[in-house]
Amino acid sequence: MSVVISSLKWDAARSGTQRITYDQDGYHLVRFPYETTEESYDPWKMHDPANGGPGESVYPDARSGLIWPSHDGWGMLSAMVFWEADTRALEYRARFVRDPLNASTGYDSTATNDTMLTRGGQFRTYLWQMFVTPGTPVGLKISARGAGDARIATRITLAEFKLAIHTDVLTP
């Protein structure tokens, strides 16, 4: 079975702070730089600044948070987020979204995950599988919530977002 992959990494030490700002849906679209690092891998150009608009995207604009599938297939989305300690945050949320900027087929959130504050570090991993198609980007959106569901403008220190597309899906 053929698999095509896009693997993105952002970390505060390399790319500076990424402060959480909330969109209308109450989530932040995590942005990723357009660069090749030891952890980033994108030979199919699914995270290309030319994708999705009339001009080149420039990190950290919203389009830098998108992966544009290069093939139709069964997509395995995975992510990892490390949150900076913030005593106001009581829960952490993440979701994978088809077309998070509502630029092609329409916003479609899926696989929302909600976890409580733990005594240790706030390190989370996420996994979801779904069909993907060229022309419909996917993104990772996150949110930190406090008392009364208040959105907390905390920071993240590390984020990774990966898409592996199985291109040879059999049908009966």
Rank of each mutant, 00 (worst) to 15 (best):
V3D: 07
S6A: 15
S6R: 08
W10D: 02
A13H: 04
R14L: 11
R14N: 14
T21E: 10
Y22C: 09
Y22M: 10
Q24K: 04
D25H: 04
Y27A: 01
V30A: 01
R31V: 08
F32L: 08
E39I: 04
D42R: 09
P43Q: 04
W44F: 06
M46P: 01
P49I: 06
A50D: 10
N51G: 03
G52N: 02
G55E: 08
S57M: 09
S57F: 05
A62G: 03
A62T: 06
R63Y: 10
S64M: 07
S64H: 07
G65S: 03
G65W: 02
L66S: 01
W68Q: 04
W68F: 13
W68R: 01
P69L: 02
W74L: 15
V81E: 01
W83L: 06
W83H: 09
E84I: 08
A85C: 00
T87Q: 14
A89F: 06
L90G: 04
E91N: 07
E91S: 13
Y92H: 07
R93A: 12
F96C: 01
D99V: 03
D99S: 03
D99Y: 02
L101H: 03
S104A: 15
S104R: 12
Y107W: 15
S109P: 15
A111C: 11
D114M: 03
T115A: 12
M116T: 09
R119D: 13
G120Q: 08
R124K: 06
Y126H: 12
Y126F: 15
Q129E: 12
F131H: 06
V132C: 13
T133E: 12
G135K: 10
P137R: 07
G139K: 04
K141S: 05
I142K: 09
A144K: 02
R145G: 00
A147S: 10
G148H: 09
R155I: 04
L158H: 12
L158D: 10
E160Q: 13
K162L: 12
A164M: 12
D168T: 11
L170H: 11
T171C: 07
T171F: 13
T171D: 12
